[in-house]
Amino acid sequence: MAETAANIMNVTDKPFVWTRPVAPGLHGTPGAPGVTALWRENLAFATLTVRRGQEAALALAAAREHAVSLPDGPFAAQGKGHQGKGFVCFGTGPGRWLACSEEATDLAGDLAATLGSTATVTAQDDAYVAFDLSGPCVPELLAKLVAIDLDPTVFPAGSVAVTSTAHMGLMLWKLDADRVRLLVGTSLAASFSRTLAASALEYGFRLEAGRGTGRG
């Protein structure tokens, strides 16, 4: 069956089996892809929640131990991990952050060791799948996914949004002027990949699988 936006959502033929993730490769309009998504399952995550009344102490500890100024809003801030491994902390709510590291290390363990007396640290390494988006049509694609004004004047690089798309929770992190990282719950990764593909086919959509390809 032809690979169209209509049947990507509704067929049982490969590569778009419902319940299955979209297969890696180039889909939709041929030529240079307008959107490239790198499916990543090798990032480390941990949630950080401040203990009651420990805001100042946590900020101090984070600055001292990780040279990071914990953002007080939906923004990302770069921190230094132990053993020289970097991580990024972004605000997900008042007194709540999600830390994300490119290296799949014991991020939660490291943070608990340094910040555990002022914050609760919870490992979430397996909770999220990341899609790193790049390409000239990313803004048009994102307009189909989220009801948030992403104009660079309103949502500059380093901005973060916790939101939802198509009844799926979604975290959106603008890495830099051209790239966006989307985080979705691992159980929803396959469904999300189909939503992503159906919206991006018209631009030409290239999916690059990182380590994993989802559940089955």
Binding site: M9, T19, H167, L188, A190, S191, R194, R215, G216
Partner: peptide
């Protein structure tokens, strides 16, 4: 919009979905 047929709403897959399918 997208929400029709089998994509009426997203489905969450269990960690062992692929194995169970097998």
């Amino acid at each position: 919009g997208h929400h029709r047929g089998t994509e009426f709403r997203p489905v969450r897959l269990t960690p062992t979905h692929g194995w169970a399918d097998e």
